[in-house]
Design a protein around this nucleic acid. Sequence first.
DNA 1: TAGTGGTCTAGACCACTGC
DNA 2: CAGTGGTCTAGACCACTAG
Lengths: 261, 261
Amino acid sequence: MNKQQTGTSSVYSDGVASSEPIYLQIAQDLLKSIRNGDYPVGSMLPPEVRLCEHYGASRFTVREALRWLTDHNLIDRRRGAGTTVKNSEPSTSFVYRLSALSEMLKYPEDTYRENLVSGMVQVDPQLASSIGSEIGHEWYRIGGLRKSDKSALPICWSDIYVLPEFAPLIADEATSHEPVFQRIERERGVMIANAQIRIFASSIDGELARILRVSDGSPALTFVRRYLDDTGRNFETTVTIHPEKRFEYALELHRDGAGGL
Amino acid sequence: MNKQQTGTSSVYSDGVASSEPIYLQIAQDLLKSIRNGDYPVGSMLPPEVRLCEHYGASRFTVREALRWLTDHNLIDRRRGAGTTVKNSEPSTSFVYRLSALSEMLKYPEDTYRENLVSGMVQVDPQLASSIGSEIGHEWYRIGGLRKSDKSALPICWSDIYVLPEFAPLIADEATSHEPVFQRIERERGVMIANAQIRIFASSIDGELARILRVSDGSPALTFVRRYLDDTGRNFETTVTIHPEKRFEYALELHRDGAGGL
DNA sequence: TAGTGGTCTAGACCACTGC
DNA sequence: CAGTGGTCTAGACCACTAG
């Protein structure tokens, strides 16, 4: 029977003749069933052995199909327990990949942070809406300019808020070349699991305008980044304010597999 | 026969000691060799058969290891040709996922585009630097405001540039609720494979300030989005200018598997 | 044409989950 | 405990690439 290389046998997906590999046909067929409602979100898929019988394929082939579904965020698999349907539509249509979080806001290599103010702060309503923290919480704040050797104008103002327990890690530096979260990760083993980023336009006024050497009311690009560890704890938040024309953020989204339907 | 180099390993399936699966040990070992410089970026990895001999593993196991390297963006594989080293450090640490491109700039449901100007344009130097096209190229441009029923203030100004061949698709509308690229995708079968996005601060002046009902020199958040099909052709480019406080962009990055190192 | 990676089979043992 | 998915072997045919 279906010994090798399908070629002619397109038993599964109705319609199109498939030179597609069997595992993809099976994956598409399962996706169709999931969309159909045969396997609603939250329900279980049949075990691998049952699928092997049903499709007349080896376990390897069925597992390749299930791997495809996993890669497209449609199912969850757990050893011992079975396969549950997580989603009815392939997610991950477009993906933005970073090899490291520090690439998110990538400044030229020759830039560094000049730390100008620091100390404990308590969250007031205004700060709460800015960094998304709760009123009354305490953070250690370090504020300063990002500068470059090549330019007299600073690139941005940044305010970094970390949980008080991490203050000793960063309190002693006048200038730094390493991102704070990287230091926390290295020294304390706190891993970033999640980063929430907000981007919006703002204007620069008063004292800050003077420091950044722009005129009052100048446009700026503001980033607020909240870093969460794997328990969901927000352990660092950073606000950076970039005057017009000194920084630009670029990202590239790629269509991620899926293809078919 | 099981020659292992990674110190902790010793792979005998019945033994109790081996903590990690063999394919991961092989993957880590290959990664080490790549970092070492044994296989510089651009060079070829040994073929699967050779790796099977070297590690005393089956082809399946070796392929699982190579799949791991592929998933982490370290190698490229081509049937017929071999396996080339693409990168010396595992990438894909953080991922931003969209189920659809229209989620990228998501406006409330009750908003729509009011098309105000349209026609062919030829790229001059200024436009070239703005949309990243070549001088002299021709685009069909449609400009207008995004509005909401709930607010008198427009959300943004948008300029949409499409290749002349797609002009008929969008030339006839006074208002639209559907993204242009979606229409092109649906009607012409052109799939977006890639989107390049630039985000920066700008100021709004003159005529545009009046249209957007802001004062001269007001801050804005500007997005330039270039859409490319699977052949790399840039078939649509969109520029949107959001006055301060009317729009905010949020994204969430997730750590993507990897684990190990 | 020789050699590569892509797909596939038919077995096997294991670690883990839930009853 | 029975059943699940995770790993692994030893074979095989195929489609593709390059010399």
